[in-house]
Design a protein around this nucleic acid. Structure first.
Length: 589
RNA sequence: CGGGGCGUAGCGCAGCCUGGUAGCGCACCUGCCUUGGGCGCAGGGGGUCGUAGGUUCAAAUCCUAUCGCCCCGACCA
């Protein structure tokens, strides 16, 4: 039996001054965690009990679809060079040397190790499909750890990897994970949603994120109030209302108009008496990438056109450019390319690359919202002048039309036309069709039915263990503390005798706790010699969903059961207490 | 990495400007008292004031450097 008086549950009256979000404040106050360094936490008794229960659920569901491994957390440099990621990971990777001077790193993720095993061991299509998973620590030297356990430098992840003979097989493995994740998060009692995610330029073809809405989160998700459409802001699209086009002026060709000193969209639109929707904005960027042969960094101009009132989404841009990053063009670079000062830039009078491979010319990416539009207003590449009557496709030829725009709240759902909303959320899981990236680069091959060598196709899938607890705390808390779903709470029931000095009350409480424990409930007996107020405050704080108050009514053969979530209070018979909880706790899931 | 803030007892803070015995609340220990929402009384323990250097008769306080932590931004397989 767990007696509070003998346990280490260091609750605090006040939260640490530097804690901002609810989950951080309460997990520290409730004695679940303590900070060791920035983004590095110790998990104490209560925290570890909760994590063990979460991992138990994850393991139980994962065992239905895959096999549990346990991989090393220290990896040799060579392994990461094989996939090409030793160089890519940059400062986010913790690196170290051993006594011989060999380079090692701490595990950020395990695609490399898993693929290494597959490469060495898998020989035949008969061995496929495989789903391998583990629950293990990940290390990421985040630029800015924050918000308690929400963004840390060491954390526990359930990660799994699937190997299939073909895309149809991957679809099956992916769906198995999708379903398993839903079961896991349902069992953890989370109110989550599944959103389409950016599958990136890394060869991924499909990706979903499992999200819990909370203001403390760092992700932004778009969802339809009517239908089931939901997507990460970096992926979401919307149906735009039609824009009333301007009438052609003059001979209909691009027409110069004097706009002295008018540099911003708003200034020009106001000056010309038009809506920003009829204006284009020109964003001038540079793409810096090392030459694959010489290794020398070469910069390449990338120009974007967006509708005047739209915001560019950097993730979408990066995806369009094959995962590469851009930086804003500098003043001299702008003058060199456009022969004009910033503020009056436009696409007219220049020759743009025919496609991304055409490295001789600058790239012009035009947001899809401008495709088919007519008589737009844009810069004239001449100080103090803009152009009217610009029609894309007629007056200039873009390299490509791509989706570069961030959806804004209130726009129409691309599926059903309903209204879209945007929320912040925390990501608790992610499933991802990797494709051939790692199996290809690391040379995993199996023989197919015809004895032909083929490359297996992979998926990777992750669940953040700490984030399940964090999201649960963010989801259910009030000014006094938080309450967890019984499935992931360190204890399901706390038994609180109001006066541990009263022999009758204490012995009744012990009896109740013993019987409940014998019936399979997880019980914490608060036998501390404290005043009732202290015990009630602590009970409210530490996340246990049910409390039994053993007090005066013992003489009548009853105790009070308090449901933490609703504060609902109910008398229960001492003799039938196990039946009470079988009915009210087990059936409530 | 850019901007801002903070390091004084386990937690929350005052003292610093204007240099002169290191304080308060909570927590902790002992005793008494009390027992349905962080009780009361009395006594007590605990801090090289982040670290290093400098100025000074004297530094928590002034100066310099450095380390750490938090927040905003950039970044984030």
């Amino acid at each position: 039996m767990h007696r509070w008086s003998q346990l280490f549950i260091p609750t605090l009256r006040e939260a640490p001054a530097d804690a901002e979000v609810a989950s951080h404040k309460f997990l520290v106050r409730a004695g679940y965690i303590r900070q060791l360094a920035a983004g590095i936490y110790s998990y104490l008794f209560m925290g570890q009990r909760s994590f063990n229960k979460i991992m138990g659920i994850v393991r139980h569901e994962m065992d239905k679809i895959g096999q549990e491994f346990y991989l090393p957390a220290i990896h040799p440099r060579e392994l990461w060079e094989a996939s090409g990621r030793w160089a890519v990971m940059g400062d986010t990777m913790f690196r170290l040397k051993d006594r011989k001077g060999a380079n090692l790193c701490l595990s950020m993720t395990h695609e490399e190790v898993m693929t290494e095993i597959a490469r060495k061991e898998l020989r035949s299509y008969k061995q496929l499909p495989q789903i391998w998973y583990q629950i293990q620590s990940k290390f990421r030297d985040e630029a800015r750890p924050k918000s308690g356990l929400l963004r840390v430098r060491q954390f526990i992840m359930k990660d799994s990897y699937s190997f299939d003979i073909d895309a149809a097989g991957l679809d099956v493995s992916y769906q198995k994970h999708y379903d398993a994740y839903c079961r896991i998060f349902d069992r953890c009692g989370l109110n989550y949603m599944v959103v389409e995610a950016d599958s990136g330029a890394m060869g991924g073809s499909q990706s979903h994120e499992f999200m819990v809405r909370t203001p403390a989160g760092e992700d932004r998700i778009v969802s339809c109030e009517k239908c089931k459409y939901a997507a990460n802001l970096d992926k979401a699209t919307s149906k735009l209302a039609a824009v009333e086009e301007l009438k052609a002026e003059g001979d209909g060709k691009p027409l110069e108009v004097h706009t002295p000193g008018m540099k911003t969209i708003e200034e020009v639109a106001k000056f010309l008496g038009v809506s920003p929707k009829n204006k284009m904005k020109t964003l001038a960027l540079m793409l810096e990438s090392p030459d694959p042969k010489t290794g020398k960094a070469s910069a390449r101009a990338v120009v974007l056109l967006m509708r005047g009132d739209h915001q560019m989404n950097e993730t979408k841009l990066s995806s369009a450019l094959g995962g590469k990053e851009t930086r804003p063009m500098q003043e001299e670079e702008i003058r060199h390319l456009f022969n004009s000062p910033a503020g009056f830039l436009g696409p007219i009078g220049m020759v743009w690359a025919k496609d991304i491979q055409d490295i001789e010319r600058p790239v012009l990416l035009v947001d899809k919202a401008l495709e088919g539009r007519t008589n737009l207003i844009g810069g004239a590449n001449k100080e103090d002048y803009h152009l009217k009557n610009i029609t894309p496709g007629r007056d200039f030829q873009p390299t490509a039309y791509v989706d570069l725009r961030s959806v804004t709240a209130g726009e129409d759902c691309p599926n059903c036309g309903g209204t879209l909303r945007i929320d912040t959320a925390v990501e608790i899981g992610h499933i991802f069709k990797l494709g051939y990236k790692y199996s290809e680069s690391m040379g995993a091959r199996v023989l197919d039915k015809n004895g032909k060598e083929v490359t297996p196709i992979m998926g990777s899938y992750g669940i953040g263990i700490e984030r399940i607890l964090t999201a649960a705390v963010e989801q259910d808390n009030d000014e006094n503390g938080f309450w967890l779903p019984p499935q992931i709470a360190p204890f399901e029931i706390v038994v609180t005798p109001t006066n541990a000095g009263d022999e009758k009350l204490l012995s009744t409480a012990v009896d109740i706790a013993e019987r409940l424990e014998a019936a399979g409930f997880e019980v914490l007996l608060d036998d501390r010699d404290e005043r009732p107020g202290v015990k009630f405050k602590d009970a409210d704080l530490v996340g246990i969903p049910f409390r039994i108050t053993v007090g005066k009514k013992v003489t009548e053969g009853t105790v009070e059961v308090v449901r933490r979530s609703t504060r609902q209070l109910e008398d229960a018979s001492i003799s039938e207490i196990t039946e009470y909880f079988k009915k009210n706790l087990r059936s409530a899931r």
